[in-house]
Computed example of a mutant assay.
Amino acid sequence: MKSLQDYTTVIRPDNNGIFAAYIPLLSGCHAWGQTPDEARAELIYVFEMIQEEYKEEGRSLPEDVELVIANAS
């Protein structure tokens, strides 16, 4: 069974003074919090829900891909 540590996770400040956390590979797997730790804790909860949905549908979570961030120059 996959865990959150198996995926690239992004946590960044949002424009509203809160933090957004998400897994780029998994559509809908995003959460927010007042601190990076709070956002990550919420993301764990969302990830578990998505994992359960995949299981109920008889699907496996996809393998993570390498995330490359390029500078816009």
Rank of each mutant, 00 (worst) to 15 (best):
D6W: 09
Y7D: 00
T8D: 13
T8V: 14
T8I: 11
T9F: 01
T9G: 01
T9I: 14
T9A: 08
V10I: 15
V10L: 14
V10A: 07
P13F: 02
D14S: 12
D14P: 04
N15V: 02
N15E: 11
N16P: 00
N16G: 02
G17C: 04
G17F: 08
F19W: 08
Y22D: 00
Y22F: 14
Y22H: 07
I23K: 01
P24V: 04
P24G: 00
L26F: 08
L26I: 11
S27R: 14
S27E: 14
G28P: 05
C29M: 10
H30K: 10
G33K: 05
G33S: 09
Q34K: 15
T35Q: 11
P36Q: 10
D37E: 15
D37C: 06
E38C: 06
E38T: 06
E38I: 06
E38D: 14
R40T: 02
A41I: 05
E42G: 02
E42C: 09
L43Q: 00
L43P: 00
L43A: 07
I44V: 02
I44L: 02
V46Q: 04
V46W: 04
V46L: 05
V46T: 09
F47D: 02
E48N: 10
E48A: 01
M49G: 00
M49K: 02
I50Q: 03
I50A: 00
Q51Y: 07
Q51F: 02
Q51W: 03
E52D: 15
E52T: 10
E53N: 13
E53A: 12
Y54H: 10
K55D: 14
E56G: 05
E56D: 15
G58S: 14
G58L: 11
R59D: 12
S60E: 15
L61G: 05
L61E: 04
L61R: 13
P62F: 06
P62Q: 10
E63K: 14
D64M: 06
V65A: 09
E66R: 12
L67I: 13
I69N: 10
I69W: 07
A70I: 14
A70F: 13
